[in-house]
Amino acid sequence: MTDFILLMIRIAISFILTLVLGYFIIPFLRRLKVGQSIRAEGPQSHYTKSGTPTMGGIIMIAAILITTLTSGKLNRHMYIVLFSTLGFGLIGFIDDFIKVVLKRNLGLRAYQKLIGQITIAVIIAIYQSKTSAYETNVLVPFSDYIPFLGEKLDLGFLYIPFIAFVVVATTNSVNLTDGLDGLASGVTLIVASFFSLYAHHWGYPSIAVFSAALTGACLGFLRFNAYPARVFMGDTGSMALGGAIAAIAILTNLTLFIPIVGGIYFAEALSVIIQVVSFKLTGKRVFKMSPLHHHFELSGWKETKIVVVFWGVTLLLCIVGLYGLK
């Protein structure tokens, strides 16, 4: 049986596990009354979602864990991506727990989240700098078309702080993307598929298996999370997905590809930064609301249209990313 067929089997296993776990866990979350609170300043169309169970990310995390731990592909790379996924997922879970179970609206304070995120990110950066055959180099996308740059870019002593920054930024960008039914799970499904194909073709078997498990989990979660959502992933899920994507990209040395294949994540985060900076400097807002998906909502786009368009853009960007590989 070829490795590619085995990858398809892992996607199927993770997909089925997510469906099965969802049918048990979602009613349990309802009984716990861990409903999502909707921001008063958010779009009015979201008020009907108030009370929808959140913290559904534990469904995906459990499916990914079972799928990868039974794959027979366990090695240091697998442990690191699991560490990143579970570590960031734990930070999100604690934040969700404080907000929806203990009913403290603020959740974890920003500095508390940041300390945890930076700690995990630095560990990943140090690991990669010590074990990667590329050492402190990262692959340059479209290197054939960029003058004065080679296939690899050596970051030297800046490698660890740069990688740590990328991990934290990516994780929080995915978290910002999780604002519409099926948006973050659908975008991550496509991005994870890209990394699974790359890892399979370029000799990262454990990363390929993990990416396949992530793909299947996102696909299965869409059964419950697509409009109208029966459950939200919460910070538990979005932080875990962000940690997974960041670790996969870094361990495959595709760090600089994240803004390309994860262009939607990048745009969502950039829209928030632009909005905040513009308001502080000029008192004016560039967007009707940030993150970016809310701007389109307030511009009259239906939620389902925004999600499908963002999925389509991600698919196109992943195809572009494939052409950017050497």
Rank of each mutant, 00 (worst) to 15 (best):
residue 4 F to Q: 03
residue 17 L to T: 14
residue 21 L to F: 15
residue 21 L to S: 09
residue 28 F to A: 12
residue 29 L to T: 05
residue 33 K to Y: 13
residue 36 Q to V: 14
residue 43 P to N: 09
residue 49 K to S: 12
residue 52 T to L: 07
residue 55 M to A: 05
residue 57 G to T: 09
residue 58 I to K: 00
residue 77 H to Y: 15
residue 79 Y to M: 13
residue 82 L to H: 14
residue 84 S to K: 00
residue 85 T to W: 03
residue 92 G to S: 04
residue 94 I to Q: 04
residue 107 G to L: 07
residue 111 Y to V: 02
residue 111 Y to T: 03
residue 130 K to T: 08
residue 132 S to A: 03
residue 135 E to I: 03
residue 138 V to T: 11
residue 138 V to P: 15
residue 140 V to N: 03
residue 144 D to R: 06
residue 154 D to Y: 15
residue 166 V to Q: 00
residue 173 S to L: 07
residue 177 T to I: 08
residue 179 G to L: 08
residue 182 G to P: 14
residue 185 S to M: 04
residue 186 G to I: 11
residue 194 F to W: 12
residue 197 L to S: 00
residue 199 A to R: 06
residue 201 H to R: 05
residue 202 W to K: 09
residue 203 G to I: 09
residue 204 Y to R: 00
residue 210 F to G: 11
residue 215 T to G: 10
residue 228 P to Y: 13
residue 231 V to M: 08
residue 238 S to R: 09
residue 240 A to G: 08
residue 244 A to M: 02
residue 244 A to N: 02
residue 245 I to A: 00
residue 245 I to R: 00
residue 257 F to N: 12
residue 260 I to G: 12
residue 269 A to Y: 00
residue 274 I to G: 11
residue 275 Q to N: 01
residue 276 V to R: 01
residue 277 V to K: 10
residue 278 S to T: 06
residue 278 S to D: 04
residue 291 P to R: 04
residue 294 H to P: 06
residue 300 G to P: 14
residue 306 I to W: 10
residue 312 G to K: 04
residue 321 G to Y: 04
